[in-house]
């Protein structure tokens, strides 16, 4: 299973980024291989509009099963994510990546 996180850094102790479309990075954790990879999304700061669908499209290329984020995606991004079938968990905006993962496993995050 692949789990994606919206983050402000590239490792387990990084802070989560509460935003979806303009998240600085996303981290992808493959729990079968125990592999952590990341994608640098900081370019999205330059997008006046459309950051949500663009980030959602990018995320789709990594084909995660789960997305863990903070505030949850906006309307346009949600439309894209719905088509990808990824399951979205929100409310992890103030945590570290590690804490967010633990919270997900402990079933304390809200599912969209």
């Amino acid at each position: 299973m692949k789990i994606a996180f919206t983050t402000k850094g590239t490792n387990w102790s990084s802070a989560m980024d509460p935003r979806f479309g303009r998240t600085e990075y996303f981290l992808i954790y493959d729990d079968e291989k125990d592999e952590l990879s990341h994608y640098d999304n900081r370019d999205s700061a330059n997008d006046a509009h459309g950051a949500g669908p663009k980030t959602a499209q990018k995320l789709f290329e990594f084909s995660p099963n789960i997305l863990i984020t903070g505030n949850g995606p906006g309307g346009n991004a949600a439309t894209v994510l719905e088509k990808t079938g990824v399951k979205i968990f929100i409310g992890a905006g103030e945590m570290t990546v590690k804490e967010a993962y633990e919270a997900f496993k402990g079933d304390t995050l809200k599912k969209l």
């Binding site: 997008d47 509009h49 459309g50 663009k54 499209q57 789709f60 346009n76 894209v80 088509k83």
Partner: peptide
């Protein structure tokens, strides 16, 4: 289409093209 759109109004998602008219 996705490449030439500067406003991310056209998104390719696998075998599907999505258009966001508002963008």
């Amino acid at each position: 289409c996705q490449k030439v759109c500067n406003f991310h109004a056209v998104i390719q998602l696998g075998e599907m093209i999505m258009v966001f008219p508002e963008l």
